[in-house]
């Protein structure tokens, strides 16, 4: 069965959640990384510790960006496969 896009409530039971999960997880990691940086400022009095945790927060954000990128690539590849299976022609990725 070809995976469907989760773009309509009717598609929800059959849609492929993988790319949405990745993007959602990525967004949550972005927010988490920011919160780590904020909390580090409040809770850690030492400059070195603060710096370490702010940089750790940024690292978490970079992982989040990576997940979003992975979700984007997965989504586009699925669209590509879908278009190929329908028409066998070029892929445009339109919605």
């Amino acid at each position: 069965m070809v995976a469907r896009r989760c773009d309509s409530p009717l598609n929800l039971p059959l849609c492929d959640w993988s790319e949405i999960d990745l993007k959602l997880a990525g967004c949550l990691l972005l927010i988490s990384g920011w919160l780590i940086a904020l909390v580090a400022l409040v809770m850690l009095p030492d400059f070195a510790l603060r710096a370490a945790f702010v940089i750790s927060g940024l690292a978490v954000e970079i992982i989040g960006l990576g997940l979003i990128a992975r979700g984007q690539v997965t989504e586009q590849r699925q669209e590509q496969a879908l278009k190929q299976s329908i028409s066998g022609t070029g892929f445009g990725g339109y919605r």
């Binding site: 972005l30 990384g33 940024l58 989040g64």
Partner: peptide, 25 residues
């Protein structure tokens, strides 16, 4: 120097962790 760079890093973290999710959402 170090504290100033850290302040800028917090700004970068805020852009990625707040502005991007808000804009995307």
């Amino acid at each position: 120097r170090g504290p100033q760079i850290l302040a800028q890093l917090v700004g970068v973290a805020t852009l990625l962790g707040f502005v991007l999710p808000v804009a995307y959402g």
